[in-house]
Amino acid sequence: MQTNQDNILELQNVTTTFFTKQGEVKAVDDVSFRVGKGETVGLVGESGCGKSVTSLSIMRLVPQPAGKIVSGKILFRNEDLMQKTEEEMRHLRGDRLSMILQDPMVAMNQLLTVGKQLGEPYVFHDKVKGSLQGMCIDLLRKVKVPAPESRVNDYPFQFSGGMSQRALIAMGIANNPDLLIADEPTTALDVTIATQVLKLMKEIQGETNSSIILITHDLATVAQICTRVLVMYAGRIVESAPIKTFYKNPAHPYSVGLIQSVPVLGRSVERLASISGQPPSLFAMPEGCRFAPRCDKAHKKCFKAYPPKTQLEDDHSAACWLYVKD
């Protein structure tokens, strides 16, 4: 187990709730995990399981006024972000702590040039040295956008999908952040471009030694660049494991299901395995384990109470009654 000093980020029992007219929704429920320095952690789960809200909680940018982080600690560089003022947070964002949103086409302001948007992390953190235009061009060159000198004056709609995603990554890494959260950075891209983008992120990480949280629902992406995996289901982390352990020896039945539903090249199967049923409605969470209704290993206990987190081996834990010895 790594010590506190090696952690760049540690979430302790973070709960983020949305107060809606239909009722309260705990989008992120009692989530704890840590990210080491220089580590790439994959956060996987189905759509709507709370991955994006988790990342917005870390940025303290949960949509207001409906959403609120109601409890927990978010330790970034051993300082609790929950105690920071809005102005202190603004200084961290885009500088030490950064994020890339999932759809580059809507994440960029269509009315401002790419260069203008790329320059913002420099301008608003007083990092402009020499020519701002030159810095933006260097940044585009870094993410391998061809002809950066002319491209810097283009508008986002003149960029292709892959180039937009690169430009967005460039905005995220402008100030070499300590932590970069990438929210499904490859979802909007086709496979070849996605691979290039992932390779690029890996390269940049090698240069800057940033930590990355990669949010995705695609296990193949995780396998390509992550060192550790967090599996999220219905607002909770159900398993945390190093990448090799996760693929060889998944503990939580949900993780097992996820891995089995990935097609493997060269292995022919009648029908690809899938997890039957639907995730629970956020308004009506089951009392016990949230996965129990869909789990083929579920027994009586699973429907009664939520299972505690069990440490299986170093750095591998799961929240499942199967591993609770009484």
Binding site: M59, G94, D103, N109, L112, E120, F124
Partner: peptide, 27 residues
């Protein structure tokens, strides 16, 4: 103000006044 480009501007640490006037209001 609900759009992704406004969230992205905040992620970059753009001060709220510029977020509102430059990013949101222009659109």
């Amino acid at each position: 103000l609900k759009s992704d480009y406004v969230t992205m501007a905040r992620i970059k640490g753009v001060p709220e006044f510029y977020v509102i006037m430059l990013h949101a209001f222009k659109n």
